[in-house]
Amino acid sequence: MGEHVKNVKMVKIYIMGKEYEVPEGLTIMKAMEYAGYRFIRGIGCRGGFCGACSTIYRMKNDYRLYTGLACQTTVQDGMYLVQIPFTPAEKPKYNVDELKPTGTTILSIFPEIARCVACNACTKACPQNLQVMDAIQAIKRGDLAKAAELCFDCISCGLCTIRCPAEIIHYHAFQLVRRLYGKYIAKKAKHLEERVKEILQGKYDEELEKLAKMTIDEWKKLYEERDIEK
């Protein structure tokens, strides 16, 4: 081990069954990199937003199967972990403009939602701590506003989806719920409407034109000097 880890407490973790000693306090992602893994897949934003780094783990003397985002969860001594790939599913085709905002619309695209047995495995799996089962149940009974509210923070990591005995594809269904909710149910944001109108009227054409002609360095400068909303 290199000089820089002196004085740092080490913890023992098991990655796909192999034992490693890594410094305490690292995220799973950094710990894996420390252990010599190089991520090609299963990584994205490193900030807890993209949902690419789903990880499952167990602790010593505990039957529970925990889940987490590798970029957010810190390692603990005695962690048995593995990164899991995204739970695959065909992307359904639909046109939000032609759909009615009802529960049966969603059920007709994702009828497997009817198979939910309320086991709650999805809720336990969600690294965002969403009430996933309640959201599915809300869809089942047609309460889209409730469902959209419950799944607003879903990052489509697919961890619930791989745990579901009813083979429901939560992340696609939730996306549809939010789309329907946004289009038909949620109150329209007035400032957004106004801004879109302004754009369509060409109010920003000139500025955009200017941006398009800038070099990368000029962009960077502009970005660094921007007003940050507080």
Binding site: L107, S108, R115
Partner: peptide
């Protein structure tokens, strides 16, 4: 096959849920 049910939009949920428990 749940993805191939006729007139699914108009069916009451309980038909679909019962069918998915009894038929799948």
């Amino acid at each position: 096959d749940l993805r191939k049910i006729e007139k699914l939009e108009e069916l009451p949920q309980i038909a679909l849920i019962a069918a998915s428990r009894k038929l799948t």
